[in-house]
Each structure stands twice: as C-alpha cells, then as structure tokens.
Simulated scan of single mutants.
Amino acid sequence: APTAGVPLRRGERTAGPAVAWGRLFLRSLAPITVHGLAGLMMALLWRSPYGPVAALLVLLPMGVSWWAFAQYHRERAAHQATIRALVQAVDIKDGYTRGHSERVGQASMMIARELGMDDERVEVLRFAGILHDVGKLGVPTRLLTKDGPLTPEERRVIELHPEYGHEMVRGISFLGEAREAVLHHHERLDGTGYPYGLAGSQIPESARVVAVADAFDAMTSTRSYSRARPVPVALKELQRCAGSHFDPRMVAALVHVIGRAGWHPAVTADDARAVPAPAAPVTDRPGAHR
C-alpha cells in the first residue's frame, strides 16, 4: 500500500512492465538497426560493379564492433568477480550477516528503479548496496559477532568501517558514486550519523538509498544481537524515522515497491547461534546495526 505522509515526487515511480519492455526495446533498437543496415549495405555492394570483395569490406567494421562488445563483456565479468571476492571475504569474516550484502544490493536496486533512475545508475546503486559493508574487513571479528550491546569504545571502532571501506574501493573506478555510498551510508538526515555528521542534501543520494536498504535488511534479519522483525514492522519503523534518520523519498519508494513486488527476507544466522532476545529494541536506534 502507498505510504501515508511521504509521497513520491512526480516521475519517480516506474510504470511497471510497460516501462521495462520499453527500455528493453530502446536498448535493442540500436544494435538491430546497425546490423540491419550493414546487411543491406552488403547486399547492395554484392550486386554492385565492385563485386563480392567490396561487400566483404563491410565485415571489417562489424568485426571491430564484435571485438569491442566482447571486451566490454570481459571487463564487466572482471568487475563482477572483483565485487564477488570482496563480498565473500566479508561474509566469511561475519557469518551472522552472510547474504546481507546481496540483499542490501537488491533492496537498493529496487529503490533506485522505483525512483525512475536509468539502468546504468540502478546498477551502480546495486554495487553500492553490495559493497556498503566491505570496510568490516578492517574491524575485529569479536566485535562484529559480540552478543549484547557494545561498549562506547567498541562502537567507535565499529563506526570506522565506512572509512575503511572507502579506502578499499576508492581506486576502483567503475564503482562511480557507489564509493560515496560506502563512505556515507550511516549518515542521518538530521546530522546525527557518522562518520562526518552530514545532514540533509549534504548526504549523497546514493548513500541515502543504501541507508534505507541497509536498515531494512538489518531489521528483517537475525543478528548476533537481535532477532529478525516482520517486514511490516520494519517498514513501519522506517516510516517513523523518515525525515529524521532516513530520506522520506527512499522510504516511500521501498514501501511502494515491496507492497507491489513483495520481499522474502532470509535469516542469516543458524537457529542454534541466534540469541533468544535482542540486545536493544529497534525503535530505540533505528538502523543502529553493525
């Protein structure tokens, strides 16, 4: 159901299957047109006074085009392998949150699409969600898996992970604005977040998307210090904190898309390892996860 009090701005919601098919058609239009024209040119040259040799010259630019296309796909596969390796390292280090990165990437992608972002930016937002916690590789495992609340000193160490993560990915050029999301996904709209206490529009849009996706999955997944909440409870908590902790646009987008497409959260911890009760209520510190 639509979110009361936090409507999306005009043009920010996708129109459903028609838009998806339209985008697919537009992406396919250019290569189909180019290949069709090349085929027509070959046919005309073949029947021209210059003969088959001239027609074969058309194959040269087509070969170059094929090579460039293959290079693009190899580069994309390398990008995916890089991200997969980083995420696997985080999952191995913190078994309680295994799968969390992929789910945050999925939720970030859903929000971005609901806001009407183009496909290239949606992909970047997916990368941002997947890599948002990569800085936890620099945090001691005992803090990530500690049962119960953290001490102030332990929390200060945990709160360094966005900066660690940014340092780790800053040289990966294809990530684009995803690097900003890694650094700022724990900032809050009212300026009480970390690491720099940015407020409002000072927080990059990519980070505001990932912040909502991250908090949502944290609340709907079992951790070493809290049990999973039902999806409606988590969405209601996000709505309660929209405008103070989270961008209302991002919250509204997530509520709309989950209401339409649904969400099936996975419990990331084994039942035997889960704690019987949460260390602190979610309503005390929404999004205050490790």
Rank of each mutant, 00 (worst) to 15 (best):
L198K: 14
A199W: 02
A199I: 01
G200V: 07
Q202T: 02
Q202H: 08
P204W: 00
E205D: 12
S206P: 08
A207P: 04
R208C: 03
R208Q: 14
R208H: 06
R208L: 05
V209H: 07
V210R: 08
V210H: 10
A211M: 10
A211P: 03
A213F: 04
D214N: 01
A215V: 04
F216C: 02
F216W: 09
F216E: 05
D217R: 02
A218Y: 01
A218L: 04
T220D: 06
T220S: 05
T222C: 11
R223F: 10
R223C: 03
R223Q: 14
Y225L: 00
Y225V: 03
Y225H: 07
Y225R: 09
A228M: 10
R229C: 09
P232D: 09
V233Y: 05
V233L: 07
V233R: 13
V233W: 10
V233M: 10
A234D: 00
L235I: 13
L235E: 11
K236P: 01
E237R: 04
L238Q: 05
L238M: 05
Q239S: 14
C241L: 13
C241G: 08
A242H: 04
G243E: 10
G243P: 06
G243N: 06
H245A: 14
F246Y: 15
D247L: 09
D247R: 13
P248L: 11
P248Y: 07
R249D: 09
R249I: 09
M250L: 01
V251K: 08
V251S: 04
A253E: 07
A253M: 04
L254M: 10
L254E: 08
V255A: 15
V255C: 12
H256Q: 14
H256F: 00
V257H: 02
I258G: 05
R260E: 15
A261S: 14
A261C: 09
G262F: 04
H264Q: 14
P265N: 08
P265Q: 09
A266F: 01
A266H: 05
A266I: 11
T268M: 12
T268L: 05
A269W: 05
A269I: 15
D270H: 15
D270L: 15
A272I: 11
R273W: 15
A274P: 02
A274H: 02
P276K: 08
P276W: 06
P276S: 07
A277K: 11
A277M: 12
P278E: 02
P278R: 13
